[in-house]
């Protein structure tokens, strides 16, 4: 049996890691706080408090231990990880696994890359683009252009994100690529409505989800998280608009 303070230290590490993985994968703010508190309560730590923002987590067990923080620098949408952390938290709260096992599992989750192959994501973006082209009232003849432009946008954003780690810049370059491909398609006669092609192709990049999540966080009373996500959404939207503007200016 480990001594009490050490046990507490491990518990805080474990809860912070769980919260951090969830927040980095794009979980809702209230769900992260809720998961951390549930895990804490299952270990008989009833005084636990957690304060979660999109850029950092503050967690305290009450009087016994120093309060700890964990900074969050990257945020992507990775639903698979959220499910895995959720499962660990479920197992811990129903006492199927111990704290040590949970910590090991969380460490494993953090180290593994669960993303599907890039090619598959690019294909998905391509098919999503042509679907949106049709849903938004485009014509069938524009489908090849949207297919290529949407896939190219997703590929560029993935590559640039890996190279530069600046989200704003990679989205800007990706939209630029989409705009250039759409203009070329129009120039060579493979596309008719440039607006519809571009809207369909930028849909995988548009921060619609961020905007909706931001409003939702604001409604749930998480004003810090809501404003931060809103700012991120605005920056992304601005990057996309700037990329399109550059193409349109020609």
């Amino acid at each position: 049996m480990i001594e009490k303070p050490q046990q507490n230290e491990l518990a805080i590490d474990c809860f912070l890691l769980a919260g951090r993985i969830m927040m980095e994968s794009g979980a809702e703010t209230y769900r992260v706080e809720d998961t951390m508190l549930r895990m804490a309560r299952s270990q008989n730590m009833n005084d636990a408090q957690s304060y979660v923002t999109p850029t950092g987590i503050i967690f305290s067990l009450g009087k016994t231990q120093p309060t700890r923080i964990s900074a969050i620098s990257t945020r992507v949408t990775d639903l698979h990880r959220i499910v895995l952390v959720n499962n660990v938290s479920r197992k811990l709260t129903s006492h199927i696994i111990t704290l040590e096992e949970a910590y090991d599992e969380l460490n494993k989750i953090q180290k593994t890359n669960y993303f599907l192959p890039v090619l598959l994501q690019v294909l998905a973006a391509s098919f999503a683009s042509i679907s949106f082209l049709i849903l938004f009232g485009g014509i069938w003849g524009d489908m090849p252009a949207a297919f290529i432009a949407g896939g190219a946008g997703q590929y560029v954003v993935t590559v640039m994100q890996r190279l530069t780690r600046v989200k704003f810049f990679s989205e800007f370059v990706a939209t630029l690529a989409i705009g250039i491909i759409a203009s070329l398609a129009l120039y060579f006669g493979y596309g008719a409505q440039i607006d519809k092609i571009i809207i369909g192709s930028v849909m995988p990049l548009v921060p619609g989800l961020l905007i909706t999540n931001a409003v939702r966080d604001l409604m749930a009373g998480h004003f810090t998280a809501g404003m931060a996500k809103g700012a991120e959404a605005f920056l992304t939207a601005f990057a996309i608009g700037a990329g399109i503007a550059l193409v349109m200016a020609w």
């Binding site: 949106f132 849903l135 938004f136 571009i198 809207i199 930028v202 849909m203 548009v206 921060p207 619609g208 989800l209 905007i211 909706t212 939207a237 601005f238 996309i240 608009g241 700037a242 399109i244 503007a245 349109m248």
Partner: peptide, 18 residues
């Protein structure tokens, strides 16, 4: 909710502004 999200309108907004 992705099909409902106003991506097209957001795009038009940014285009109008720039």
């Amino acid at each position: 909710i992705i099909p409902l999200v106003p991506g097209g309108v957001a795009y038009n907004t940014m285009r109008n502004i720039v």
